[in-house]
Every structure is written in structure tokens, then in C-alpha cells.
Design a protein around this nucleic acid. Structure first.
Lengths: 248, 248
DNA sequence: TCGAATTTGTGCGTATGTATC
DNA sequence: GGATACATACGCACAAATTCG
């Protein structure tokens, strides 16, 4: 026998996926749901919270609970390095332009020492100096993606590209910046995982708590060594990732 | 001001990520937590449930709540087509062998008509006949991955490869099977999303409800047309996905 | 502008059922 | 069987946010 709150949640979920409850629609309040199903309002609320945690609905205190507007899911094509397309522009800006949107970003750089996981990805020692840069990417002004990148200071110290977003190569992308100091990037490795959003990320991305993000651990490497690595945080309700793989 | 149950959840979460509470450890019971933080046991329970839904802990009725054993996260290398490696073996089996594990699977095929999304991926019309095959992949006997594939019956009807897991090409993989009927696959496209696990998937994979899966929508195509598409369901606590991308 | 009504969010007490040890 | 601990469910109360007359 299924608990009452799960039965009610199933009922509502079915109405949403069927389309009987459309995005933006308000779902019945606690009192109403409780009456309909003959349970206490506490249980009705619990059912609603199941749907919140699954990302189907969004509650606004005082206003009600609404079926979530799924923003159109855009595709991030990650297979080919796309620097050339945008000409003196970053891969992100080129990607957004291809979708008819204005790509901009905010960033903040700070020198730091390499934590264990990052040191391993950059093939340096734990505690070695790195430049850490945090990005918030915006499409048409709204935040859509986060990224934190690490570069070994050993490579960039004293060069014009030490600060990624200042100087002559500001906004040009990692590949162009590294080329400027003689590092020819030939390969990108991307490790993909997914998890719940953190409170900090939810605030930066204006996403509800409980939504899911994919994390791309991208590492750029020359023939000799890794030269940059980044954690790219992508909300699943905004983007899907696309890879093209030649067979044979 | 943060609600009490979130403060308690934060406190416990910190202890887990710090390692003060190790995988397998039992966390304090409701009564104990409530006393420590000066709240009712109801609130202590709510805090614990936050951690359950985040996948940090697992409750066993009657026994207690325990920090989850994270199975070692394995890496699925998806960049190169790996048929040759395993010789007369499937890509999955070759992948598992590379990790020193025994790769097997169960499957069930059934002819069906193409639903809208699948029809689009296969570039056929909605309602066209397809062969649908559901796979449960096992590593050392335990289920680790699910897949549902669709192939246009127009291509395979009346050939020895119509049923993917019967006949001379059983277990040989899509690329080899399609080659046998003159379809030379040259490209794989993979679209990646992530979402909460469904109840059915949780049962098949022996994963707790609320855990997160990545879904790979893989489509194999020849120069002319798509010939197979599949939804591959991968639990994030078992696998991460790895792609290598040449730059420029 | 203000206040009343509505709705969600949080919290406590109590009770019963069920699984585990 | 008994003790313990989690799961479900009802009741009540109040706070905070929103809506609307």
C-alpha cells in the first residue's frame, strides 16, 4: 500500500506530464488538495514538496504553487573547438550568437594555491600557486552558466595573460591566450557529472533550490601538459550537452 | 535567519564532507539530534530527510541512518568507438573488461511504433514501425546502467539482425550489426541531460529514490541517415562520462 | 495606503505502524 | 518478545509573503 502523500504526488505528476496542468498553471492549495483526497493539509503539503524536489512545480510563499515554466532547453555543442567561428570572440559568445542571444560575462580572478583535485588535473603539486577565476555567464543579461577555472601561475606569471580577463587578450578564450605565451592547446578533456545545485549556485543562477546541474570538468592540454582546468556548472533545465563522435 | 532543520542539515553535511562521519557510520538518531540542537524530534527528522534527498545518507527503518557508501565512481570513456578493442565483443563488455569487471546484460526486444521524439531522432515519421530493445547492463552481476534503443524496422525487417540480441550478431554491438546489412555507421551523436531517477529505474538499478541519473541520447548515423537511437540511463554515483575533444 | 484574506513555510505535540536488532 | 528507530499521519499554531478589495 502506497502512502497517501505519494499517491497525491503521483496524481498531480500525471496531470502535469499529461498536459492537463500546463506550465504556469497554479495547482490546488494545501486546503483544497487535502479536501479532495480526504487527508490533512500537512499531507497535502508533503505531496507538493515531493513535486518541488523533482522540479515539476515551484512554490511562491503567499502566492501559491505553479507548474514550472521550463525555459527552452538549449543545446551546447561541445565537440569542436569553435574559436574561429567568432573571430576575436570567446567560444561562449560565439555559441550565444549562434542562438541569437547576447553572450556576456562577469569574472573575478584571484591567485590561490592548488587544492588536491585541481593539482591532479593540472599535473602540478598540491599547494602550487594557481590563478583561480570565477565566471558568471549571461545570455541576454540573465545568468545561465557558472565556471571556475584554474591555471598554473608557473606558466602565466609575468606574462600579459596572467589575469584572464585583463590586458590585450581579455575575453579571447583560453586557447588564444595560451597560444600568446607559446602554449599550443591540442586537446580538451571533459569529465561530466551531475548533482543537486548548491545554495550559492542557486543564488547566482537564479534557479530554485533542488534543481539539478551538470558539472563539466574541462581540462585543456598541450602535447606536453595540462595548462588550464575548469569546473563548468550547467543547469539541466537550461542546457543539454551535445557531443559528436566519429566512429571507427 | 535559517530554519532550524536546515541548520542541523548543514551541520551534519559538513561532518560528512569533512570526513568526521565516514561512509558506513551511523548518524545520531532523531531523539539524540533533537536534544543536541534543542528542537523537537520532528525537526531533527526533517533535517535528516534533507540529507537523504541529497543522497548523503540512507535510512534503514528500525536500524538507524547511515552515511552512504559511495560506490567508486568509474569513468565511461565515450570518445572513441571501441569495437576493435574487444574483438567480437560489445563496447560495454570491452569497457568493463578494461576495468577488470565482468560485463553482462539482460535484454528484451519488442516491435513498436515510433513515438514523436524518437521519430525525430531517427528521421522517420511518427508511428512508423520500430524495434524497441530494453537493456539492463550488469557489472560483476549487479545492475549499473539501463538503455532503451530504437531501430527502424524498415531497415532491419527480414534480415538476420532484426532482433538485436538473437542470431549470429547477438551481443556484437550496433555498429557491427548494421555493417552486416550494409549500413556503415560513421558518426555517433550524444545529447546529455540529467534528472531525478524514476521509481522504475530505481528498482531496476537498486538505487535509492531521489538519486540522480544522466541520460545519454545516443544516435548512430551513416552518411545518409540515422540508423539507431538509444536512451542510456547512467546513475551519477556509479559513473562519470569522459569525452576527449581535439582542439582546432 | 492599508488591512484582511489567502497561501506557503516552519515548528511542536501526539499517535500508530512497521522494520530491525 | 521487547526495545529501538524510522515512516506515516493527524492536530494546532504562528510567521512571512503575496494578493486584492
Amino acid at each position: 500500500m502506497q502512502p497517501a502523500y505519494l499517491r497525491i504526488a503521483d496524481d498531480l505528476r500525471r496531470q502535469i506530464v499529461d498536459g492537463r496542468l500546463a506550465p504556469g498553471d497554479r495547482i490546488p492549495g494545501r486546503r483544497e488538495l487535502a479536501d479532495q483526497h480526504g487527508v490533512s493539509d500537512k499531507i497535502a503539503m508533503k505531496a507538493v514538496q515531493v513535486l518541488v524536489s523533482e522540479g515539476y512545480v515551484e512554490s511562491r510563499s503567499g502566492a501559491g504553487t505553479y507548474v514550472r515554466q521550463r525555459p527552452a532547453v538549449r543545446r551546447l555543442a561541445r565537440s569542436w573547438y569553435r574559436e574561429a567561428r567568432g573571430r576575436a570572440s570567446s567560444p561562449f559568445r560565439a555559441d550565444m550568437e549562434a542562438q541569437g542571444r547576447a553572450g556576456t560575462w562577469r569574472s573575478k580572478s584571484q591567485s590561490d594555491t592548488a587544492p588536491p583535485g585541481i593539482a591532479e588535473r593540472l599535473a602540478i603539486d598540491e599547494g602550487d600557486p594557481v590563478m583561480r577565476t570565477h565566471y558568471v555567464f549571461l545570455a541576454d543579461g540573465e545568468p545561465v552558466m557558472l565556471s571556475t577555472s584554474w591555471e598554473p601561475l608557473e606558466l602565466t606569471r609575468g606574462t600579459p595573460v596572467m589575469l584572464p580577463e585583463e590586458g590585450p587578450y581579455a575575453g579571447a578564450g583560453v586557447v588564444a591566450r595560451m597560444r600568446a605565451i607559446g602554449q599550443e592547446i591540442g586537446m580538451a578533456s571533459e569529465i561530466i557529472t551531475a548533482r543537486s545545485i548548491t545554495a550559492a549556485e542557486a543564488a547566482e543562477l537564479d534557479e530554485p533550490l533542488g534543481s539539478i546541474v551538470m558539472v563539466i570538468q574541462r581540462t585543456y592540454a598541450t602535447e606536453e601538459r595540462p595548462v588550464e582546468t575548469a569546473d563548468i556548472v550547467v543547469p539541466v533545465d537550461r542546457y543539454e550537452l551535445a557531443y559528436m563522435i566519429p566512429v571507427e
